[in-house]
Design a protein around this nucleic acid. Structure first.
Length: 291
DNA sequence: CACTCTCCCTGAAAGC
DNA sequence: TGCTTTCAGGGAGAGT
């Protein structure tokens, strides 16, 4: 049971790919077509320093589009620049209005037309904000090495199979490797492997044939379902409270260490979810369901 | 090159 | 009760 309650708290904080996608859509709703009137940096930086010219490159510009690149939020402007934001572990984009004053963890405040105020809130400051030329966005240091987005059509069993070939690391570690596939976090790696019935301990190179087909569909399904669940709470975005409305989800294994797996109804067979450490990260799995 | 470990940070919960 | 310690996570970069 140790660690279980802790992790339940982490759920509410941790932005993974679906939360980033949901955040992008929420921001797009209020920012696209709007001019940025003022940006206040309330500290020198977060995980990395804010670059010189960050605010001057954005103020006065109109937001043309907001897209997601793996777990990065890309705010494209009409002057050929794009802001890149990463939410890290505890970041949120709080949508509110100019009546609301920033608090201690609101590191950047963006004010746009129609009295919209976005506050980049991040207690742990693992997030970041920087800016780059839109035309060269894929060449940016932070993005250039990233592998395929798991929701892109290019992410196929053939693609993943090729990337896993000859690799001796665990399949769990492989799913978290940004150079292989970019955007699957710890929760969705665990949940996808559970759904695919694959043990997280298996070597990456041993996942082939039907297993890799099942894994790719499981990843896409789990992420898509989570985005859908998040979409239903989108209307919460613009509420004065600024709450993002992180969706709650019935995780099958993540955070369920020591609890009966759902394959063991009523706990009659005593099959419990296990937690192990892989590359310094918690992995949750069911030894009966996942081979 | 392939892979693992360390570090950054804070707040919640455990430990005393 | 209250102070101190532990620990989680994403991802860059160091270390093996």
């Amino acid at each position: 049971m140790r660690g279980y309650h802790k992790i339940l708290k982490v759920f509410k904080l941790m932005p993974e790919l679906p939360e980033v996608e949901t955040t992008c859509r929420g921001l797009a709703d209020v920012l696209v077509g709007r001019r940025l009137l003022n940006i206040t940096l309330r500290r020198k930086g977060m995980r990395i320093p804010f670059p010189p010219g960050l605010t001057s490159s954005m103020v006065g510009c109109t937001v043309s589009e907001i897209t997601r690149y793996a777990k990065y939020i890309c705010v494209h402007l009409d002057n050929g620049y794009s802001a890149l934001a990463h939410l890290g572990m505890s970041g949120r984009m709080v949508i509110t209005n100019s009546q609301v004053q920033p608090g201690i963890h609101d590191h950047v405040v963006f004010d746009s037309e129609n009295d919209v105020r976005i506050m980049f809130n991040d207690p742990r400051r693992f997030g970041l904000l920087t800016i780059t030329k839109t035309a060269a966005i894929g060449n940016h240091k932070l993005l250039s090495h990233l592998g395929c987005d798991p929701l892109a059509y290019q992410f196929t069993p053939e693609f993943l199979s090729a990337r896993l070939k000859n690799r001796k690391l665990s399949i769990k570690a492989a799913l978290l490797d940004q150079k292989i596939v970019s955007g699957i976090g710890n929760i969705y790696a665990c949940e996808s492997l559970f759904r695919a019935g694959i043990s997280p301990r298996r070597m990456a190179k041993s996942i082939g044939g039907n297993k890799v087909i099942s894994l790719v569909s499981s990843i896409k399904e789990v992420l898509t379902e989570a985005i859908k669940a998040g979409g239903s709470s989108l209307r919460n975005y613009a509420q004065p409270s600024g709450e993002l409305g992180y969706f709650s989800q019935n995780w099958q294994v993540y955070g369920r260490e020591g609890l009966y797996c759902y394959c063991d109804k009523n706990g009659k067979r005593g099959i419990k979810v296990k937690r192990i450490l892989q590359s310094g990260r918690s992995t949750f799995y069911c030894a009966r369901c996942q081979k």
